[in-house]
Design a protein around this nucleic acid. Sequence first.
RNA 1: CGGGGCGUAGCGCAGCCUGGUAGCGCGUCGCCUUUGGGAGGCGAAAGUCGAGAGUUCGAAUCUCUCCGCCCCGACCA
Length: 566
Amino acid sequence: MRQSTLFGRTLREAPADAQTRGHQLMLRAAIARPLASGLYTWLPLGFRVATKIEQIIREEMDRIGCQEMEMPVLTPSDLWKTTGRWEALEPVTFRTKDHNGREFMVSYTHEEAVHAHASAEILSYRQLPVMVYHFQSKGRDETRPRAGLLRTREFVMKDAYSFDADQAGLEKSYKAQHGAYERIFKRIGLDATSVESDTGAMGGDIAHEFQVLTDAGDDRIAICSNCDYKANLEKATRTVPSAARTESDAPAEISTPGVMTIDQLQARLGRPADAFLKTVLIKGKDEIVAVVLPGDRNANEAKLRKLLDVAEIRFANDADFGRVGGVAGFIGPVGLRARILVDRSVDARPYVAGANKKDAHLDRVVLGRDFDGERVDVHDVSEGDICPRCGVGTLTIKRGVEVGNIFAYGTYYSDKMNTTFLAADGTRRPFVGGSYGIGIGRAVQTVIETNHDDKGIIWPIAVAPYQVHVIALPSNDEAVRTAADALVGDLERADVEVLYDDREETAGVKFADADLVGIPFRATVSKRTLKEDQVELKPRSASEAEFIPRKIATERIAGAVRRALA
RNA sequence: CGGGGCGUAGCGCAGCCUGGUAGCGCGUCGCCUUUGGGAGGCGAAAGUCGAGAGUUCGAAUCUCUCCGCCCCGACCA
């Protein structure tokens, strides 16, 4: 490919609204361009990367017997209505109607569609298990697209679906996908770790996210310093140190005029945050729920949403406070007329809690004696907490990008859509399923986020837009041009992918662009190298170049590419 | 959807407070010189100042409404 004709120019400066390094480099290196908020066009260089990533995924899916197909972007509303997601996904989806008024969704995902097909194609247990996948655009009207390709409103996802006769089969399919994912991310050059994740509103048992740790990410992951425990903060828990039970007198009211927050209580009473109980009133499905936590812990919204089976956590209003007998700022679990959830971080010792009376708190409130409630796990873990698995290591919290997820949802969709097969014993049984997604654009930018230096991208060769960047210097010199043209032709005949910088630019511009675009090998043909009858070869990731006699340059460069790919 | 910020030439920005000729750097175009790390000279093109309404003799600048974009939070691949 001659760079003089390449569609898409490099940018010397990144647009001011590009925040992360990957976003900046993605734009500067002409990988993709925004068309509107959260909508991106692949430029030729980026499209080649995306295509290579797809091909790697395709090979690994095929290897585990997952069959490629393709379902439409637009899917009819009645399909979604059978699972209730037409309503549930309303705020985050794009919709349209045809000329007869029939409604369609720009598919958010394809579980419904694939179940409809499975139901029609798979009649007997003899046809199971089956795994299928496709690469297809998803539409998600994200309220906040973010960081370039990391979160967009339309993106291509590889989504695979497994259908099994029973739970044991599902677990096998799930393991096969998990293995494929590990191979895929390794080949792409992403250091992705599988992390336990929340199963979301769909329930189900097992789910893993593949997270790439980088500050550009917007997920938070708890990681044990000792064992292999890793979990999304939405799900992460900890070992709560057991406190010795202490005896104490009955609660006593203390006057605390105007003292309404944990911070103020600490200042006023001179005790640490964990000496207090924090009580948060929230709206449940059709009840008011009080969540009781130690003063130094925050409630985890994801955990609460799942526990209460609500889409969104909303705090109680004044009327709700009155209804349960609480006073804002002085709320506590003792005598409260609400469903009470007590976080497992609360232990069996006396705390200071709100007295449900203006300007008053209760000292020496003890769980089990003075109040009680359902014991739950709804707190955020913090840096330094004890690992829940090994009980030895401490947790650190890192940011991550979720490049893929796998999810064993079981019969969730089959039950709702009544998709069944005929089992060996003659009964009709629901498909036991799982879904497995990878975002292509997100993967591309995550590779950049984790493979660059201060000059530009450093592509892993397996996904690089081209393998060798040939630089002619200067390209208007007859001899240089002839030699460079010949090298490019020879390399291409040896099946090497070449980007050829034949532009009439100065050396500085060409080298700076080569570093920015980040093709793994740079081969320079210049007046200087020609004098010695040589070609200069420099890997993007190395600081030193080597000089190769022109006669064997093609062979040597093609060999280097082959070794790098192996 | 809650909170915050920003829209002036392709990109990065100044000008706005205190109303009066629309500017700078880079890029782009032409010619010349240059060619191993974003070169130099001369010349040139390019802006509905996000949109609309208002105030004013006069609005990029003041007021209002709308639109777009970004960041933090919540949600996702």
